[in-house]
Design a protein around this nucleic acid. Structure first.
Lengths: 138, 138
DNA sequence: ATTAGTGCAAATTCTTTGCACCCTA
DNA sequence: TAGGGTGCAAAGAATTTGCACTAAT
């Protein structure tokens, strides 16, 4: 997350997006605290410095670019800590404090592929979210 | 699913909900085709026979009762094929035709628990959805 | 200089709330 | 007949669209 905050311009450019002021601000807001945020919450976090409509459009672009992910079932957004890595990203989400961390676990992927195959499905993408209490909120 | 269609009244009553005409219609609509449906889509499926607002309230109640589940990331609703069974329910969803089936896989649960523990999380609930192409849409 | 990106205003769409009436158990 | 459910009207949120203007490359 920090790497994104420290150098959001190159992060953006590496994904084919221009490094604009609004985008840098939104990334900065998202990189604070590992908590998923809704468009409205991001808008408030930047204190209205970026238009809400722009936040919507931006998140759409950044999601396509793999820079942010939507956390389900909340539907909020988090910065992807490893945008270069392909594969199944999953979330660990604390229902008390909201802290959310992303993980990648090949073994989980493998089982999901097995389940899909068994049912005659050709898997394309996976989504998994684990809700619970984090160490601090135990 | 068929069992629900054939006897939605007892299904409803077994969960403490009254077997009303609107509810029977919504369950019938949901049990057709194993496709997740939004409140609006359900409203259209019953051809306006049930008020849209009622559909919303109903889905809320039925979800609490464990009769329907929300499918993520679409946010639409499906009838739960096994409301008696506890544990982690997951979805297999065809991105072409929309067909969605639910599964339960202890091995998946187990890995997710491991992931959570490893990160110091106490897991409370899991969500997983696999998108892909079903046998018919291959 | 180009063209992606942004802001503003306004339209849509989605979801919730309040309240009176109805119908299931 | 009592209380859970429903419909209707209306409010409130959330999300999208069009278009002119700005700014990054």
């Amino acid at each position: 997350m920090l790497h994104a905050m420290q150098d959001s311009p190159s992060l953006l450019r590496s994904r084919g997006l221009r490094a604009t002021e609004p985008r840098k601000q939104v990334i900065a807001a998202l990189s604070c605290g590992s908590v998923p945020r809704s468009p409205q919450e991001i808008f408030e976090a930047v204190e209205g410095a970026v238009n809400l409509v722009t936040v919507y459009r931006m998140l759409e672009d950044m999601e396509k670019a793999g820079l942010v992910h939507r956390h389900h079932p909340t539907g909020k957004f988090v910065l992807c800590p490893m945008p270069e890595q392909k594969g199944h990203h999953g979330f660990l989400h604390c229902v008390r404090c909201g802290k959310t961390e992303e993980f990648m676990e090949p073994a989980l992927c493998k089982i999901e592929n097995t389940i899909a195959k068994r049912a005659g499905f050709t898997p394309v993408s996976h989504l998994s979210a684990i809700d619970g209490h984090c160490a601090a909120c135990r």
